[in-house]
Design a protein around this nucleic acid. Structure first.
Lengths: 187, 187
DNA sequence: GTCATGTCAATAACTGGATAGTTACTTGCT
DNA sequence: AGCAAGTAACTATCCAGTTATTGACATGAC
């Protein structure tokens, strides 16, 4: 039993990810997190303050990792949507975690607000340059693209045998976004 | 204080809707539901069994009302998506309630499975008849349409000033679905 | 080298408040 | 009277957060 505080911190964070993804904030049990982490409950309070702050840390890490592995690409939105789809497919806990966050901690963080603003701005630019149909407001377009990329995880479609058709679902998302952003000649 | 059991039942159900939409199952407080309903806590247990069963009843009523006021229309999916959008706009509690359900009671009920099957079947028919592009599997298409219709409520786009742009958002949804189902000549 | 000292990591047992569900009782209607 | 509706007070459990204490390791004095 080496005494390694950063390893303990990391184990707690990982266990908390599991627990929060499964039960949300209200349903999560601090004792269970401590057990799963193989750590003492007290350390959770030492390292993270309380249950809510621990949740915030879990979210923060997930968002950072997401931003890192799925860079925004205003000029190729179908590909961006496909990348989001892949990212969500890779870990089923992720979408659940984000849904809990929307329900239990809906306040947009500064980080999120800033990332949102950056995306809409670069989307507007892509529209001016003719890569994306300018029919919709950039913010609206972003919402629609995200809605499509997440559709399998926010609706009943993501049921039992979803894994077997993953490739087809992904292709459907990519195609749907392609149709959405396709530049049309003025009628 | 008239003694009217069905009125008490209804008040409890309405208060439970409020409470569950706000806090989910784990976060909901039975005492608070009783207070809001102006009913005695005991009556909740008499009429509904326990907290989970009460939640199930709230969901059941919401789903029934939804099915009633938003009939599926495979031959005009943009309109269907618009109707879903309107239905969700009319009561912000609704989408929250459905999200809690996905997270806390994910099992698909028989009712839901049946309604899902009916929709995909009639969608397949609409594709054969040329009303809907047959590029995608009907089940996938349904998922995408729902993803679009709910996009403002499942993503960060549904923030503060969303109400002011509701009409524009609705139009965006309808247009996005129109593009999605548009029949294309074979390339 | 080894022993005292300070510091950080970790633990088990506890506390106080909350909370789902119950019991025993009262009220009002017919 | 008799039954259904309603009530208040209770219980047993659970659970977030705390307290008091022990164990590990490094540093430096001698």
């Amino acid at each position: 039993m080496a005494r390694d505080s950063s390893a303990t911190k990391a184990r707690i964070l990982e266990a908390a990810f599991d627990e929060f993804a499964a039960y949300g904030i209200a349903g999560a049990r601090v004792d269970r997190i401590a057990d799963t982490a193989g750590a003492n409950k007290r350390m959770i309070y030492v390292y993270y303050g309380n249950k809510e702050q621990l949740f915030d840390q879990v979210i923060l890490r997930a968002v950072e990792q997401g931003a890192e592995s799925v860079p925004f690409d205003a000029e190729n939105l179908p590909r961006y949507a496909g990348a989001i789809f892949d990212h969500l497919s890779a870990d089923p806990r992720l979408m659940r975690l984000l849904m809990w966050k929307r329900l239990e901690r809906p306040e947009a963080t500064a980080l999120e607000a800033e990332s949102y603003a950056r995306k809409t701005a670069s989307l507007a630019a892509a529209q001016r340059e003719g890569h994306v149909d300018p029919a919709h407001d950039p913010a609206d377009l972003l919402t629609l693209v995200l809605g499509l990329a997440q559709a399998w995880y926010t609706t009943a479609g993501g049921g039992a045998d979803a894994a077997r058709h993953r490739a087809a679902h992904r292709a459907a998302v990519v195609d749907a976004v392609a149709r959405l952003v396709e530049v049309r000649e003025a009628a």
